[in-house]
Write a protein that binds this DNA or RNA. Structure first.
Lengths: 194, 194, 194, 194
DNA sequence: TATGAATGAGTATTCATTCAT
DNA sequence: GATGAATGAATACTCATTCAT
């Protein structure tokens, strides 16, 4: 019951955020959406900040679930490829969450990203490193510093998605972006494969 | 005098933005800084949005001036290399402007980026395309679709800078980032050079 | 006009304070009383604190005007006596202001009393010291450390008024208190006169 | 157990009050400190007022215990002197309680001080009267109306302590205040002794 | 051109308290 | 006896903006 309500509040907050962005995500609006008094929210979340952070964590959780599916692949090569595809899918299907995950402390309205969230971010990066590492071991990628190589791939992915979501590729066209994304990533891989 | 005032307002707005970020950039603060009444600003800018847009344009202007210096290089190769370095320098020396240039409409507080700004962004992209194109013609890069190749390079640069400014590389350390940036870009070029 | 409004706000604030005390003195209530929107007050006062401080200063000003009348007396003895009477009159006629003047920082809602107010308090004390000093010189009071003697008189006055206003003498009865006050002060003076 | 709990709550409330003052003494904070839900407090106290009143009574109880020790003196003179010293010690060692005991109804958040507390205050006063009376009978003080004389002494003590705790003697300096207190009281006594 | 006054909508938050469980 | 959920009223304050002067 406690956590039920809490979940419900979080969902409404998510919807408002997804539709109107972070700036419009006020306690009042959330409460109105949920059908409670604004104060009721404080039973479940210490702060607006607290609530927002929970939302970010939710974003990471979802991101993680997308990436995790890549592990179903039976070889390092497949898993590496699927990871790239999962990244792409998350970016397109959960664009708002994608943006939320990559928000600056300032945008989140805090001095510095809380440790809990930093850890989640680090875990995600680690997942990518793992994929690269096992691909190196399997001889699919040239040997090298895994973190460095991961960074190249991550930066490429994030760069592309950022520019796309920012509208720098014109009107949003997911199909088209998929092509671009895959081509670009492949180009990078071409330089990294043996 | 009209435009003198206007310039002065814009400069103050810039300073506040550079120091405290966009959210703290309020008409009141700007006015106080300039030494005018808040209302006086409306003589020069339709509203806050308008003022912010002008600021973004200023950011593009500065970005342009950084990139432009790359043209002093005497060969396509040098110019290509210097472009990458200019991008890096702008990102590190003018981080706030960098962030402003790559803000989403939402963060800027508008439905969609106004055409004027979109054009500036496009112009920047075009400059990069030019560098790639001439490098291809000069045989420094493998032949290919110039826009596509440019995108790969741009995405890489932007991805790296974004992640860096977001703090995903730990405490800000410019020297260290420069190394990472250069290595990563070189890796990409390695895959693109003949 | 500016200062006219300001004055009017201060008067309303004073009335609310006088009737309902400091805790009830909210920006909203003041605004409602004045007939303005709550926000209009901020045109004239930086803060609630600012407004309250101004009110305290007003209190000191009034206190000062009461004491000042004692200077009309033609001899040190008369002036000393009238000062005691002025203190008494202020306490009874302006009880709320009396209480406000002797509020702790905590009650005023601030870390420490601002310097401006501290100075006003000091000035008042100095006025009392002056009366004692000239009485000593005139041979009305035994010679001694003027500040120390002043303190005895001030403490006696303040102690009596405090206890009275706190209701420790039963139902408020001004006539009765006047007697008590005069007798007590006289007792003190008896011990101080030559 | 009932009264055990109750006692525990009161102690926590006291600690919060002693550390942070009355305004910060909220049901929530007390509950958190005790380790109960805010609502549990209402099982033991009708409302916040009730709880605060109990706290004031506690203050009087402690005050009483300080004064009571003066009775250990073997002569009226010693007892009178020790009473003054006990008053001083209570004021310095239990300043917060001192302030609480001498709070106005308003500060306590009620229309008028409840009878129970008035009685406690009266009892304290009576204790002082007793000391004066026996000193008169013993020929230590000049004969006179005991209540009146007591008032002079009480007012002096309270006045001094009030002004001291309000910070009107500069930075708090207990040693220094002790001197002032003793000198001033002695001055009064000089005028009252035979 | 510029300003001073004022507004209205909005923000997060604190608190004592009621009520069903 | 105690709790968790929720409320309603209140608070100070920030901001962009309108309007008469």
């Amino acid at each position: 019951m406690n956590s039920r309500r809490r979940q419900r509040i979080l969902e409404c907050a998510r919807d408002i955020y997804l539709e109107q962005g972070l700036k419009a995500l006020s306690m009042r609006k959330i409460a109105a959406q949920v059908g409670l008094s604004p104060m009721a929210l404080y039973r479940h979340f210490k702060d607006r900040k607290d609530l927002v952070f929970q939302l970010v964590e939710e974003g990471f959780r979802i991101f993680g679930s997308y990436l995790h599916q890549a592990l179903e692949g039976r070889t390092p090569q497949v898993r590496l490829h699927r990871t790239g595809e999962a990244y792409l899918r998350f970016a397109l299907e959960q664009s708002r969450y994608y943006q939320m995950i990559f928000m600056s402390p300032e945008q989140l309205g805090c001095e510095s990203i809380p440790l809990e969230i930093q850890n989640k971010a680090y875990a995600t990066f680690q997942f990518l490193v793992d994929r690269v590492q096992e691909s190196m071991r399997a001889g699919i990628l040239k040997m090298g510093e895994p973190m460095e190589v991961t960074l190249v791939l991550w930066a490429q992915s994030h760069g592309l998605v950022s520019l796309f979501l920012l509208g720098h590729f014109g009107e949003r066209n997911d199909k088209n972006f998929q092509k671009i994304y895959r081509t670009s990533i492949q180009r990078i891989l071409d330089g990294l494969e043996r």
